[in-house]
Simulated scan of single mutants.
Amino acid sequence: MRNNARLILLDKHQVEALLKPDDVVEAVRDAFALHSQGEGRVFPVVREPLVTGGVFGIKSGDVQAQGLLGFKAAGFWPANRALGGEPHQATIMLIDPKTGRPLCVIDGNAITTMRTGAAGGLGLQLFARADSSRLCVFGTGVQARVQVSFALRVLPQLSRIRYVTVDGQRDVSFEAHFAGRCEVSHATDRNAAVADSDVVITATPGTRPLFDAQAVQPGTHFNCVGADTKGKRELPEGLLTRGRLFVDDRTQAREIGETQWAPNTECVEIGDLITGRVQMHRQPDDITLFDMTGIALQDLTVARMLHERAGATGTATSLAWPW
């Protein structure tokens, strides 16, 4: 009955209690597969600068056959750092496709972080050399940490991590975060760090190349996380065309991802590899790149999983929401 309708709310602490990395990986894998099969739709992205200095965006989509519909309102507010808060902010809403009424409102920060990390882990499993043991990461923030965490989960021989900071200074907290799991050291020469790595992860809000193209050695894999808005970039000119390019969504990557700087580059969507529509045979000297812009279906499949789990465990706030 309409008058008995309720709205489920999941706050930051409830989301973090329910999120499990393995479950997120499966939800993200499902999102990419649905996208490949044409069952999951991704609607045009909204991504606009604000006079406050922030960037606001909306990613939305649906899976009609499964009754899944919703959006994530999110963006980047750098001034939050001065307030002691996280610059990335996100809120996810699931909607009943039959009525248009909201079903669930979820704090999306932890979801965004972990679903992006899970996508990075899938990218490493599919594209990086299995014997990769040396990793270089640009950035030491929330997303850099989750990317490295998933790398340690999926690359069993990974034993050394070198990190590059924007200010060139050592990040003691980043080192402590991974202490005991592998060797972690600060790199002051970014080109040397890239040249001496099997895997490179770029996770910064950068707008210009982080290293020189000539530093890249045959066999290197790149997970490119930072470019998610027009004008942002982390890779040097010419690198995309030197390697084998993979994306989460072809159109989105060309609009807001690293691929915006070489939009005519041939690429393959990761979902097509997951579903077997495309086969990949990596050669040892191949340079591979995964341009990760993050698609709405990742947020929605993870949000649906949390909505179901919250109902099963009673971990949620429920409000009367009559109409």
Rank of each mutant, 00 (worst) to 15 (best):
E16Q: 15
I95A: 10
E183C: 13
V278N: 15
F32H: 07
Q283Y: 10
V199S: 03
T113Y: 01
R162D: 03
I161E: 00
I161L: 11
V278A: 15
G276D: 11
P209T: 04
G120I: 02
R134D: 11
M93G: 08
M280V: 05
D198V: 04
K12L: 12
N3G: 05
A193L: 02
Q157R: 15
R2G: 14
A73K: 14
P102T: 13
R134N: 07
C104W: 02
P284W: 11
F290D: 03
G53Y: 05
L50R: 09
R282M: 10
M93L: 07
A5I: 07
G100H: 05
D131Y: 02
A31N: 04
F56I: 14
A65Q: 15
S197T: 03
L210N: 01
V184R: 00
L300G: 07
V42I: 08
R244P: 00
P21R: 15
P44R: 14
R115A: 02
T229G: 02
V268C: 11
T313K: 04
G67H: 06
T207W: 04
T259L: 11
T275F: 05
V225I: 13
V63S: 08
S197F: 00
F127I: 03
R170T: 11
L68A: 06
Q217V: 05
Q89W: 12
S185F: 01
A193T: 03
A253P: 08
G294C: 05
V194W: 00
D96F: 05
L239P: 00
T188M: 13
H281A: 10
L300A: 09
L124E: 01
P322W: 09
T165N: 04
F32Y: 08
Q147L: 07
R134C: 05
C104L: 07
V172W: 08
R47G: 10
A74P: 04
N80I: 11
I201S: 01
P322K: 09
A128P: 03
V15G: 11
I161Y: 02
R101M: 12
T112C: 04
F150L: 04
S197Y: 00
R101V: 13
L124C: 05
L240G: 03
